[in-house]
């Protein structure tokens, strides 16, 4: 039977923890930024949109190196956060940060599209009924965009689960700390005789991905059904 070794369990657990943390922490700013890009008109909007998409275009190694320069122990942001007890360098939190940054453009893009599809005339109707902007957003815009928000979160999660280049550049490949599934597979391939173990992890990786996809699909459908049932 196919049973997981303690080491494999630990790799999977770390991968899920990193991806989930990355998704949970990037979702609120992702939603906010997506809404801003969808609805607001301000100088520098194109620039902000471009910056958001930068990690998608840059080689992941470059993004990872930029993170290292910024958030490393001697980086300007790293030094700023260190006294607060927030450390990213060579820590699993750094892997989560790298995964979040890499998944952010995909997430924002999907959510922004769903905001674009929400009829702004319906939002105006809510205003005439006394809804101030924040309430209008929470009661009308966000519920109507929920399927898209869920899709964005899934994309971000999937990207986080598979992130490699930026992670290994930023926080290296430390067993039990930053060695997620892709990094573990890469390490095993580098060692002679590691192919069999690598193949096991490849299958596990496929399984985890499909599982995550099914759960998200189910979640999105439940959210859509809830909206349809209410509407």
């Amino acid at each position: 039977m196919f049973s997981l070794s303690p080491e494999e369990q630990q790799i999977i657990g770390l991968s899920l923890k990193v991806a989930a943390t990355a998704t949970v922490f990037s979702l609120p700013p992702g939603v906010a930024l997506a809404y801003l890009l969808s609805r607001a008109d301000f100088p520098g909007k194109a620039l902000l949109s471009g910056l958001t998409h930068l990690p998608l275009i840059l080689p992941p190694v470059v993004t990872g190196y930029a993170l290292l320069l910024l958030f490393g122990r001697n980086g300007p942001l790293g030094r700023l956060l260190d006294p607060l007890g927030i450390v990213f360098a060579f820590d699993w939190t750094g892997a989560a940060l790298a995964a979040a940054v890499m998944g952010f453009p995909l997430m924002v893009r999907a959510i922004r599209l769903s905001f674009d599809l929400v009829d702004s005339r319906i939002e105006r109707a809510a205003e005439t009924l006394g809804a101030r902007p924040l309430i209008r957003f929470l009661t009308i815009t966000l519920p109507l965009a929920l399927p898209g928000v869920a899709a964005g979160a899934v994309l971000g999660f999937a990207k986080a689960l598979g992130e490699f280049g930026a992670t290994i550049t930023f926080v290296a490949n430390i067993p039990g700390e930053t060695r997620t599934l892709p990094l573990a597979i890469y390490s095993l391939i580098q060692v002679p005789g590691g192919e069999a173990a690598a193949l096991r992890l490849v299958f596990i990786s496929v399984g985890v991905s499909i599982g995550a996809l099914l759960i998200s699909e189910w979640g999105a459908r439940a959210a859509t059904r809830r909206l349809a049932g209410m509407g």
Partner: peptide, 30 residues
């Protein structure tokens, strides 16, 4: 005065009911 503070009811030509709410919740929105 912003729209939401004016207390002017507006019935739009295209009704603009909230699609994710029942009629009751639409009515009770205000």
């Amino acid at each position: 005065v912003p729209v939401w503070k004016r207390r002017i009811g507006y019935v739009f030509q295209d009704a603009r009911l909230f699609p994710h709410m029942t009629v009751r919740d639409n009515l009770l929105y205000g």
